[in-house]
Design a protein around this nucleic acid. Structure first.
Lengths: 108, 108
DNA sequence: TAGTTATATTAGCAAATCCTAAATTAACTC
DNA sequence: GAGTTAATTTAGGATTTGCTAATATAACTA
């Protein structure tokens, strides 16, 4: 599944924001999301599965708990797709600053 | 409609790529997309409507033609959402370069 | 004006999405 | 082991999506 399909859902975007602050148990995620979006724990679990299957999150077992962590590779792809559009809003920079700004060619 | 919902569809992402190269008549878009994705002209027209309604494209009338142009504000929102995740893959830079890289605080 | 070209809109359908409720799995605790 | 806690999975349904075919609108062209 393409990252954009995963990111389409606001619940999943919010889960990723939570995971960006550090790993969390499934239940801790479900508690926050359930409160913010008024959905049940199984619904959150299903969203976590989508994140797992699409490579945006990984799980670690800790006793009866499942600890979720963010995996950012698919987000990097999204970032790369946006690259071709940035010229429409990013300020023009001189060439060295531009190279740094784009995070490119740091060692070529 | 949130930009991420619009970007979810690969046809619409491709249309935005085309428009990034310059404005195009509806028919010209339909020709390329129809060939690449094997869908009909009305289907493309419906996607163009979604892009219009979500503020990602604007139209100009030229006789019987409708000329579409890219509007990037919603893409900037996507870019902004990604910002909080960039620290996971962007190289650490010294503070001045980081400011430039993030395109922030250019005049404060 | 009649026909053609360019494009949008509508109706309807198949597939996908996201939810809840119920059932299941697995690990702790007494 | 029995009960409890943590989490996932499954079944089913309402809603949304994206398509095609048909139709409509509007502007050129002979």
């Amino acid at each position: 599944m393409h990252a954009f399909e995963v990111l389409r859902d606001p619940v999943r975007r919010r889960i990723l924001e939570l995971l960006a602050d550090g790993e969390r148990a499934s239940g801790a995620v479900a508690e926050v999301i359930g409160r913010e979006f008024a959905i049940t724990q199984p619904a959150v679990s299903q969203h976590l599965k989508v994140l797992r299957d699409s490579g945006l999150a990984s799980v670690r077992v800790d006793g009866a708990r499942r600890i979720y962590a963010l995996d950012t590779s698919p987000l990097q792809e999204v970032d790369a797709w946006l690259e071709r559009f940035r010229r429409f809003w990013e300020p023009r920079l001189d060439s060295l600053a531009a190279e740094i700004a784009r995070g490119k060619r740091r060692d070529t």
